[in-house]
């Protein structure tokens, strides 16, 4: 059997970097980030967050091939701000957002539990 290991779709290969960056050859302040072992989940998340930045001129992502577990994110920014900088900002903002979601969800579940526990006592 020569089928690749199933976990190769989400676990980095030995010595593989999570992300590499290739500046565009023709356009200044533009480039492609290659994110290994990631898919639409992260690709679309990053694209939408990059577009919230006023300095982003273009942001798009693609999965080049269904059997290659790689996600390309292309960014073009306004001169004066490098794509890596904008990408860093987007990732940090998203990280903060998930932290808030997580905290909000935990609090709300605790509240829902308390309410459910309190209900039979009232009747």
């Amino acid at each position: 059997m020569n089928a690749p290991e199933r976990h190769r779709s989400y676990q980095l290969d030995e010595g593989q970097a999570r992300m590499t960056y290739e500046p565009d050859q023709r356009v200044a302040s533009a480039g492609t980030f290659t994110i290994n072992k990631e898919d639409h989940t992260v690709g679309n998340l990053l694209r939408m967050q990059l577009l919230r930045d006023g300095d982003t001129r273009f942001a798009g992502y693609q999965l080049p091939h269904p059997l290659e577990h790689v996600c390309h994110v292309k960014v073009e920014t306004a001169p004066g701000r490098a794509p890596v900088e904008v990408m860093g900002g987007a990732v940090t903002d998203l990280r903060q957002e998930v932290e808030l979601l997580d905290r909000g969800f935990r609090d709300e579940c605790a509240r829902a539990r308390e309410e459910a526990d309190a209900r039979p006592m009232e009747t």
Partner: peptide
């Protein structure tokens, strides 16, 4: 840019 989401169960 960083959203401040809220959750309601």
């Amino acid at each position: 840019r960083a959203r401040r989401p809220e959750v309601e169960v």
